[in-house]
Simulated assay, not measured.
Amino acid sequence: MESMDDYKEELEASLKKIRVGDVVTGTVIDVTDDAVIVDLKAYADGVIRKDDLSEDPDFNMAEMIHPGDEITATVMATNDGEGNMVLSKKEANQVLAWDKLKNMMEERTVVPVKIAEIVNAGAVAYLEGIRGFIPVSRLSDEYVEDLKEFDGKTIEVTVITADEETHRLVLSGREAAREKKQEETNKKIAKCEVGAVMKGTVETLKDYGAFVELENGLTGLLHISQISTKRIKHPGAVLKEGQEVRVKIISTANNKISLSMKELIEEEEEREAEDTYGYKEEGQASTGLADLLKGLKL
């Protein structure tokens, strides 16, 4: 037979005193057109009106909340006149969201957000229900000429400022875009074969070498020691920006492409020596004894 002990937890929960301002967690039991009903396992159910669910203007109650979901909200009133508690998820979000946002900032978490609107000098997006600002300089890893192109677009961002006291949330898409681009570049570099010879165009000259854009779209470093078989003081003594060159891939270590013109020059000189003198790298003469004695008078 059932006894009072079988209902001990339910009884204790139903008698638990809930006050205005408490943050409570319950299970969604119904979603209507304008409210969410929550089972708090207490003496009354909780009601969250549509306007108290989120600050995000694009929040869709029917799509985002379903019966069986667990939801956390703040108690705004213990009786709405019909025996239900009035709850606000929006208020709870304000308390809980900032902790999540601070963790995201510390852990450099990458998350997707949808641009809600374009404002002066940047864009607005909502994260954890909090309105965040993305400066135009941090929307992308490239220069943004037309801000309107980002309106309604979903981009990946990181949190760079999360100040609860000033209610200031600043997001950035630049770092996530750079990381994604670098991952794609690394995959392409992994497919490059050491020893492959390619055409390229000199992009920039530095004191230590030249950066060359290869025909596959990747950029490699042509170190000053790999430009010529002769010692040169500056890459500009041999190369100029915009010049087309033939280079050999000599390394892809650490996802960086190292190039050489010097090795191609040396290989060409070796081939010319073979053609002219019949010399092989092993040091053996390719000319036979009969050829050497041919025409010799004894």
Rank of each mutant, 00 (worst) to 15 (best):
E244D: 14
L169S: 05
G242W: 11
E268Q: 12
G195Y: 07
H234Q: 09
I227A: 02
G173H: 06
L218R: 10
R168A: 11
D163F: 00
E149R: 12
H223A: 06
E266C: 11
P235L: 07
A190E: 15
Q182K: 13
K233H: 08
L214H: 02
I189D: 09
I250D: 01
T276D: 09
E282L: 13
V159E: 03
P235E: 08
G236V: 03
I257T: 13
I257G: 12
S251L: 06
K180W: 08
T166Y: 09
I227C: 02
N216V: 05
E165K: 09
D163I: 01
E145R: 09
V238P: 02
V159C: 04
G195I: 08
E183C: 02
K153R: 12
R168I: 10
A177W: 00
K262A: 06
E149L: 13
I224R: 00
G283E: 01
E241G: 00
E244K: 15
A177Y: 02
N254V: 07
K230H: 10
Q182D: 13
K148R: 11
A196D: 15
K262H: 12
F211L: 14
K248F: 00
D207T: 14
L259F: 07
M198A: 11
G220K: 05
V202K: 03
K233D: 13
K262I: 03
K180Q: 13
L171R: 00
I189Q: 09
V245R: 06
L169R: 01
E179P: 01
E263T: 13
E179Y: 05
V159W: 04
D275W: 08
T204S: 04
T154P: 00
R174I: 10
A162D: 03
L259H: 03
C192P: 04
Y279S: 14
E156D: 10
E241V: 02
K199A: 09
E269Q: 07
G236F: 01
E281Y: 01
K262R: 13
E281Q: 11
I227W: 01
V157D: 02
I189P: 14
G236Y: 00
L221N: 10
I189L: 03
R246G: 09
E274N: 09
V245G: 06
V197A: 05
A210L: 05
R174D: 12
G152P: 08
V212D: 08
S228R: 06
T287R: 07
T158N: 04
G220L: 05
A237V: 15
K206I: 12
L218A: 13
H234I: 11
K248E: 14
I224N: 04
E183R: 14
T154H: 01
R271V: 11
V170H: 07
G278Q: 11
I265H: 02
V197N: 10
E263V: 10
T276W: 07
S228L: 07
L239D: 01
L214P: 03
E268L: 06
A253W: 08
A237P: 11
E203P: 01
N255V: 10
S225Y: 03
T276A: 12
Y279R: 14
K230T: 11
A196Q: 12
S225E: 05
F150L: 03
K230V: 04
T287A: 09
K240D: 03
E282G: 09
G195L: 06
V159M: 04
D163K: 00
Q226E: 15
D275R: 14
E272T: 12
T161V: 14
Q182Y: 08
V197F: 01
T276L: 15
L264M: 02
V197I: 14
A285D: 15
K191P: 05
E213C: 03
E272R: 15
